[in-house]
Design a binder for these strands. Sequence first.
DNA 1: GTCCCTGCAAACAATTTGCACTGAA
DNA 2: TTCAGTGCAAATTGTTTGCAGGGAC
Lengths: 152, 152
Amino acid sequence: MNNKKQIVDALRKRGNKVTPQRLVTIEVLLTFRQQHFSVEELFLGVKQRNPDVGMSTIYRTVQILEEMGLITKRNFDDGFARYELCELDEKHWHHHLICLKCGKVIEMQDDFLEALEKEIEEKKDFMIINHELKVYGYCSDCYAITKGVKFD
Amino acid sequence: MNNKKQIVDALRKRGNKVTPQRLVTIEVLLTFRQQHFSVEELFLGVKQRNPDVGMSTIYRTVQILEEMGLITKRNFDDGFARYELCELDEKHWHHHLICLKCGKVIEMQDDFLEALEKEIEEKKDFMIINHELKVYGYCSDCYAITKGVKFD
DNA sequence: GTCCCTGCAAACAATTTGCACTGAA
DNA sequence: TTCAGTGCAAATTGTTTGCAGGGAC
């Protein structure tokens, strides 16, 4: 599910129509790769290639793509919803380090929460589908600026 | 930082004034204990004791309390920001199991992410202040309803 | 030809802000 | 007395929706 053709086919299979607006949206989407994009950023990208697309079309398309499991919503408390492309094949979820000072988001591939998951499924009787770990703190740049002095 | 007097003192120390509205807000806040409350819920609670308080006052107070580190913002994708009381003393952060079907949020005390934290601080050069783990899946009730049939 | 999709504008909902007044210090 | 805090209403902002026209199938 990482190239245009596959996505287009999946759209048709769902009974959705493949319009030029959606094609452009998918193209732009695929250029985002690892980024966390907002709907507005996607909108601007699409507008560069086709200035006549409306904001609401992007919102509606994003909704469909989320239902399809192609993108996931993330929240970094910066005022608007952010999305990122899913790697549906791999089960390698990644984590986010969020700097409290500059807001930078660092991705971190790592998945040794498996032991924790097993425990949760047993002890809490909960079927796990996905998980998300956010670590808040200070990135090396921001920490350096203060020379280790505590923020407040 | 878990009783009224301490909070009031902390407010004064910050140079904030202690108004009746803020006192009531703090009182209601403390009754919430382990709950994840929205600003609106806090507002309704305050209004019961003092009907003349305005919504914006609550928003402004919540902002101050967050700056003071007394409450933290959480996001459960239900449309509005939620907050919860912090236990500043203990480092026992807790995790959230979120049911994708009914939206129920189950809390889970557990903190064996320490090994992971150590690794992050070393490998990524990142000073960790806090972390948040959200696990998405299906609670026992919702899973039971479908008799194990996969959701879609 | 049938509906789904579109763009636009208006509607929404959570949160913020401007302002004149009030009251804690 | 002073200036932060307040209530109200209006403004903002991200997102959703109603609708008439247009295009994919």
